[in-house]
Design a binder for these strands. Sequence first.
DNA 1: AATCCTATTACCCAAATGGGTTATTTTTTA
DNA 2: TAAAAAATAACCCATTTGGGTAATAGGATT
Lengths: 205, 205
Amino acid sequence: MIDVILVEDNHDVREMLAMIIDGSEGFSCKHAFVDCESALQFIPDNPPDVVLMDIDLPGISGIEGIKRLKVVLPNLDIIMLTVHEDDDSVFDSLCAGASGYLLKNTDPTVLLSSIKDVISGGSPMSSSIARKVVGSFQRSNSSPLTGRETEVLKKLCEGQNHKAIAESLFVSNHTIRMHIKNIYKKLHVHSRGQAVKKAIDERLV
Amino acid sequence: MIDVILVEDNHDVREMLAMIIDGSEGFSCKHAFVDCESALQFIPDNPPDVVLMDIDLPGISGIEGIKRLKVVLPNLDIIMLTVHEDDDSVFDSLCAGASGYLLKNTDPTVLLSSIKDVISGGSPMSSSIARKVVGSFQRSNSSPLTGRETEVLKKLCEGQNHKAIAESLFVSNHTIRMHIKNIYKKLHVHSRGQAVKKAIDERLV
DNA sequence: AATCCTATTACCCAAATGGGTTATTTTTTA
DNA sequence: TAAAAAATAACCCATTTGGGTAATAGGATT
């Protein structure tokens, strides 16, 4: 029997979801909370198998709630169940510790299979959410840098200094300094820190 | 009719997959290549709806092949179809531009629905792969840094220098330098670059 | 009340970095 | 084959950074 806890402020949605889950074979939903405050009091002492969490909640937000739950229960599986499909909501939720992200219009059948999925180590997401997540890995393929400059930038991102980079690439430190100067010009930055930030933001490395 | 191209060196696997796909209602697989070299010659002039790509290929690897295809066809949907489930293979593939990642033992029914999925903007992945991807977003919740130090580290990651950080936090640059010294000690690093790398790697910011 | 932690400010000095300029060799491209 | 781009190396100088040390004040903890 899979034990599910809901955190959802809308009365009708909460009751509806609880009924669907609790009424399904192999699922149980005996506790549902209106806000994170009450959920945070109950859950640490009574951890369920899965938590379904809304984002828009009065008081502590669902994202902040996830962070706090994860501190005391790092292995708890939490699925975000929300209407928000914007990048920030998705990435903030995942960074906070959500293992899945579903939209509220998700079909009940899919919701139930997603709950099973997250328990068995999966990360249920809608197609469009998954594409956002995957897309965040894709790097620019139009870097203004040359091959050597990209190599050097990579080393900069690893925190290496002139000398270390020169040694690892078997050239003089003068050469590395020249490469770095050119990198800065091309990226329009004036320091290592800015170069590293740009490299990461624009996935140049 | 969904046009699919295969790149797979193993003869039996290639023939089998081609037969499954081409024999299915609404799918067509008229071209299958043994290596990236030949695929790279054909595909740019005859772009299909979806490419299924193996990783282990003689000559140009599947990952390198994706990169090259994406340069000329940035919107091409590519699904990695491989036996490798290690982190590097997964992340390198996604970074190279793959939109989906499936294992070769994937059920034919799932494979076909995944092809439809990727065309409609999704990113088909197995549960365990999705968990890896989502896991890469989760940050550590046990930072050794104080609140103020974390603020400063965030600014370092944005490429700001002493003075800029001091001004944005309304304190003297001496204070910021002290914070940075303490951050370096706690993180066991000796430069901005290393601190930024550590901050990003361990998701301290 | 005593202690610890955090945040704050300050000074000194050596090392690293950033910017400007010039030049040779190799590789790539037109 | 000629021109352009990339990689290599060097010099000078001002600024920034890193490391050591010291001190004060407020808050939390014991």
